[in-house]
Design a protein around this nucleic acid. Structure first.
Lengths: 202, 202
DNA sequence: CGATACTCCTGACACTGTTCGGAAAACTGA
DNA sequence: TCAGTTTTCCGAACAGTGTCAGGAGTATCG
């Protein structure tokens, strides 16, 4: 069964070992979460996937929720870098289209990640302050982009998030893997843009 | 501890006993789901709440998922009767406002119920055909109302569901118990109504 | 080399959903 | 009232879960 890993050390890195293994475990966790769903997925199965005993995971993560927390941070970091890379057009409408596309695509591409980041569905999980800070950064970035486009009204920004999250969740719930709601993005953005015009006082 | 219920029969009804107990268990399940969340909540805790041994629940429900299934049906039945009771105004805009209010209020009222009915978040749960049929009825009812208002375009109806589900999920996620997004309903409906005018060909 | 930190595992605990087999109670028909 | 059937319930047990305590083994540093 080749189970005795003690005979032959798993890796011979000097200092970066810790981070590397942690990364490996998290990658395996992502994969499991994606195939089994966020709420199925057990530490024991995760341990099996990385050839460890379940208890050994506790050297890297304080708890199962801590694993969730790292995934939460991972996901938000990814979303943040995509926002950072986004080139915002001068034309408000096409800029709005780009933002909506970015977000809905991000959501549609990985149901488990969306659930983890945006739906509070894991029993006792609450992101740590450090992880939550990244989520706040994402939010601020989005808000800043829209402010830059001349949208300064808070209620209108809330309406924007309603549209974008509605598109995302409907896409995932009713047509996973398809584009039934992705196709509505342009129309939705047009509707929104028309509505908020002249509504701003900044 | 007064645990021996066998000494004194739990109830003396003749025929309706089965249904009554089932209803009692489901009511207890609703309460537990509401306080602990959909994904926490165990059959054993449920059994404790109704003074039974966990195994006894299996005379009423084939599995834990079957309990979820009955809750799913319960929730959809409730939503359906609310739709049935709704008096649809002649004025399309005020009718749309009423529909949106009905749905978002229903969602905001009970986070667990919303999660159970509209988010697919329980690992291996899939509603039974009979329960799903009720959900389909709800959908059809909503669609029928909007068709009656002159909205016959499928894409526009999808956009409507995007708005309503977006309002609901944002309300629950970002301001549970408050009215931050409920207050946006009228504005959102106005935006939608303005947008779909003249877009219909029925 | 020895000391110290780090990594990993064995053993165990309390919890979960679920199955089996049997006992007790309730209902049925006479 | 009494026998027979059906319904309801529970004791025991199984495999699975997250997690903790304690102790080996290894890697690194002085």
């Amino acid at each position: 069964m080749a189970k005795k890993t003690a005979i032959e050390p798993r890796r011979d890195r000097r200092h970066a070992r810790h981070q590397a293994t942690k990364r490996e475990i998290l990658d395996a966790a992502w994969q499991m979460v994606r195939v089994a769903g966020v709420n199925a997925f057990s530490l024991r199965a995760l341990a099996r996937a990385v050839n460890m005993e379940p208890q050994s995971l506790y050297t890297y993560f304080a708890s199962k929720n801590s694993v969730y927390d790292h995934l939460f941070a991972d996901g938000n970091r990814e979303l943040l870098t995509r926002f950072d890379r986004l080139e915002v057009s001068d034309d408000p409408r096409s800029a709005l289209r780009a933002v909506a596309n970015l977000f809905v695509t991000f959501a549609a591409e990985d149901q488990a990640r969306y659930e983890l980041l945006f739906l509070r569905t894991i029993p006792n999980f609450e992101p740590s302050p450090e992880s939550y800070a990244i989520a706040v950064q994402v939010f601020s970035k989005g808000r800043a982009i829209l402010t830059g486009l001349g949208l300064c009204n808070d209620a209108d920004f809330d309406l924007w998030t309603v549209l974008v999250s509605g598109l995302s969740s409907q896409q995932l719930a009713n047509d996973p893997g398809g584009d039934r709601y992705v196709k509505l993005i342009d129309d939705a953005v047009a509707m929104f843009a028309e509505h908020v015009i002249g509504n701003q006082d900044c």
